[in-house]
């Protein structure tokens, strides 16, 4: 189910590929995709799940030219070309939501539906404050807490992590910096490019998300011609960790009606 492919002759992509039927491209957030059966099985009941690991989140060499969410978007459009997939359902979380929005702006005609979970990628608030908190002012412990709902028992505990898991954690921090450092967590042009995204769009967040605020999601949704907004009760930012079944349910339901 884990596949590797050299895409557009420039980047080796690792991606999860399971199930059959209509293709759903799912783009992970600030942490590498974890093929949790609670999510994967439910999505596969609807169709084929393709979930790449963003360059930088694994050990594969990052192409020297790649340093932005729209670079990743081009790469994934190339991946789908090379897999022979023309039209698809597109979904993404956090950083992956940003990359998905970039893809939607580039090739709206190829989307059957768009589902964004706690997405970043646009600047919506005033210039005097960051829309998304600065993750690089967080200690590792604070970062893990911020990914989850307040009161969660999730913690950063190196003693409970293998070297491989620790390396994955640090690599994810490096990769987020690569894509999102400046401008912080957004492409200033993107908000002006979403009006052409005519497919049904759904934007969702965890009710207790500490990184993507409710106002941010609502204003983000308003950039699309037609988008609905939803909240997952009790959940924090990292929905794939906190509420994989609910995410799969929201996603497949949205795909089914699209």
């Amino acid at each position: 189910m884990i596949k590797r492919k050299l895409v557009s002759a420039s980047a080796e992509l690792e991606f999860h590929d399971s199930g059959q039927g209509e293709a759903i491209l799912f783009l992970h957030g600030f942490r590498k995709f974890n093929a949790d059966p609670a999510f994967v099985d439910k999505v596969n009941a609807f169709g084929r799940l393709i979930a790449p690991v963003h360059p930088g989140f694994n050990e594969a060499q990052v192409p020297p030219w790649l340093d932005s969410a729209d670079d990743a978007a081009h790469l994934y459009l190339g991946l789908l070309d090379e897999l022979g997939i023309d039209r698809f359902h597109l979904a993404g979380a956090a950083l992956g939501g940003w990359i998905a929005a970039e893809m939607a702006s580039m090739a709206p005609e190829r989307l059957k539906s768009l589902t964004l979970f706690a997405p970043v990628g646009v600047k919506l608030g005033t210039r005097d404050a960051l829309d998304i908190p600065d993750l690089y002012k967080f200690s590792n412990e604070e970062l893990i807490r911020a990914y989850h709902a307040p009161g969660s028992d999730a913690a950063f505990d190196p003693d409970q992590m293998s070297d491989h898991e620790l390396a994955d954690f640090f690599r994810s921090r490096e990769a987020v910096a690569l894509y999102a450092w400046e401008p912080w967590m957004h492409n200033p042009k993107l908000r002006h490019r979403l009006k052409r995204v005519a497919c049904p769009a759904l934007l969702a967040r965890g009710e207790k998300d500490q990184l993507v605020a409710e106002w941010y999601l609502r204003d983000y949704a308003a950039l699309f011609p037609s988008a609905n907004v939803s909240q997952i009760p009790g959940a924090g930012h990292d929905l794939l960790q906190e509420a994989p079944a609910e995410v799969a349910a929201l996603l497949t339901k949205h795909c089914a009606v699209a």
Binding site: Y136, N140, E174, L178
Partner: peptide, 12 residues
């Protein structure tokens, strides 16, 4: 530590 060692400044 998180200010002294930002991600990417030193190898993973």
């Amino acid at each position: 530590r998180h200010l002294a060692s930002p991600p990417g400044y030193v190898p993973t």
